[in-house]
Design a protein around this nucleic acid. Structure first.
Lengths: 328, 328
DNA sequence: TTGTAAGCGTTATCAT
DNA sequence: ATGATAACGCTTACAA
């Protein structure tokens, strides 16, 4: 009779209908607990979030990503097990181990991937299907669902160049993360492709204070940039605050581009020009890929729409058009 | 032998040690699946988040709250099952039903409680232990872990009054939520307690556009407020943008107070005076209360530290001290 | 105190 | 095509 309930062949349509009807009339729902035991499946996917507390509440990405994941999972009767550990690699690893050993999940999402991430081999060793979220990372033999950072940053840089900027700086994210590296590389490549020497760059840490500090350093340079591309909105907005406090007029004295399009981006002054990624779609797709991997199917090769540059008021032409050579 | 593993009496210490040693040497971990089936427990707690997508990424509360919940849960070997449904009451109810029927969780957290919330009776009907997060709500026979909104808002209003404000407006949160109502009531009470007539009030919706719109309306009043207390930071910051665009000088022409202390609050200009709640502690405590409820113990009567008013630059004395009577 | 067997609610295997 | 039965890995009641 489980054949009927699980929509498998080998049962008369009439019988199936009869069984299904009876089941629904009794309000019967299969117990995930029993099903999990007999099928050796958890019917749940895991996501371990290991971030410094400061960043937990600042990122609009995760909630939206999770919403997307949920859309896919709930269609398939799967649940999401969320684990939050601090910025602690040992606790993080232990978290995955427990998830695997206790049979809580059938697979995991790997987010905030780092360069040379130990989790790549850890999940393999644990026999845990996994999918990585973010830019593709070398020597990590995992399916990856990536957004094309390059396209987004490229658009932003091109926009700045079209406005006449020639000194375009970058405040990167926390060193060691693939998305920090990827965004920085995208910024550099876009400038180089245009034949413009990349302006100064600094490692930020994705936080407000980090963005403010980096901005202070950049503005104190002998030849400060006329535009800054930040690795996220939080740093960008904090940077605008610093620039303003320094008496700069935005965007005339400094153009600023963020990344994320947080809900506040449109409401700060000046409204922030930024790069918007569709976190919800990303979550939906990533979940589908992980489910496929678990079922041993080839990872569906789904593409994500490239991120979109949202033009607002924090970017504009630089006040003094740069001279392209100095007469003796 | 399960007696040994579960630390129950009736087994020789020596034997217990022997068993435990063997278990750890084999790398053995009890399977949650089997344990769940035999004990009729899920060893997991559920949280259903039903919010409009716009608000999902804007709220720093949840990630931090979840981190707190996790701290408590992981100590007890419990997991958190997260469900994200849109702003859809039917989907929300179905989510709880499924969680209960499929035996996925042993209890649930109820967040974003509404006035006359159907979930209060739903969980009772489902036999699902539950704990509500937020201000206590009438006619909802559930344990509640609440933060003292009143104390926080009270401090903010007192601060504004001390600065000399006499027209203190309020932009409330989405109508229908208990925390919206509670914050509004706190604002009103604080003013009344000081013998100052409550200024105009408007329903916002916790979003940036909502806060901006409400602010526009308030500023267009014949006798506009000199200070506005917003139900969250997002609306407050959007409101500051509007005030600024209207040519006002902050805080001289308008003082602004938010609620949440989002990571950006300190980095906008002027830096936002706001009320900070310890979401992490809240999560930790709430989890403990729910676990106790599940075990049939009396809910531990843990208190939360009152929210804290963070003074920054968005509040100051009003430009023209109000006259307290007009000569004929 | 220790070992044994039944049971949790499904799925899967095997006769009918 | 259908119905009975073992198996999943643990807990627990009961017997030794």
């Amino acid at each position: 009779m489980s054949f009927a309930l699980n929509n498998r062949p080998g049962v008369t349509p009439a019988t199936r209908r009869r069984i299904l009807a009876a089941a629904s009339e009794l309000g019967w729902r299969p117990s995930t607990r029993a099903r999990a035991l007999s099928r050796s499946r958890a019917y749940a996917l895991g996501l371990v979030l290991s971030r410094p507390p400061e960043l937990l509440g600042a990122d609009p990405f995760f909630p939206q990503f999770l919403a997307g994941v949920e859309i896919t999972l709930s269609e398939r009767g799967m649940a999401l097990v969320l684990q939050v550990v601090g910025d602690d690699r040992r606790a993080e690893a232990e978290s995955y181990r427990r998830l695997a050993a206790e049979g809580r999940v059938d697979g995991v999402f790997l987010s905030d991937l780092r360069l040379d991430d130990a989790r790549c081999t850890l999940v393999a060793e644990l026999g845990l299907p996994a999918v990585a979220i973010g830019p593709p990372v070398e020597r990590c033999p995992l399916p990856v669902v990536a957004l094309d950072d390059r396209a987004g940053i490229g658009q932003a840089v091109d926009h700045l160049l079209a406005l006449g900027h020639t000194r375009v700086a970058h405040v990167a994210g926390t060193a060691g993360y693939v998305h920090s590296a990827s965004r920085r590389a995208a910024w550099r490549q876009a400038l180089e492709a245009a034949g413009v020497p990349p302006g100064p760059e600094l490692d930020g840490d994705f936080t407000g204070p980090g963005g403010a500090e980096a901005t202070r350093t950049l503005l104190a340079l002998p030849d400060p940039p006329t535009a800054i591309v930040y690795a996220n909105d939080l740093m960008a907005i904090a940077g605008m605050g610093v620039a303003r406090d320094a008496g700069l007029d935005l965007p005339a004295d400094l153009s600023v581009v963020g990344f994320d399009d947080i809900p506040l981006a449109a409401h700060v002054t000046p409204a922030l020009t930024t790069i918007r990624q569709d976190a919800l779609a990303w979550g939906r797709v990533t979940a589908r890929v992980l489910l496929a991997a678990i079922d041993g199917e080839p990872a569906p090769d789904v593409g994500l729409a490239p991120p979109e540059l949202i033009l607002r008021d924090s970017t504009g032409p630089p006040r003094r058009p740069e001279r392209h050579g100095r007469g003796p």
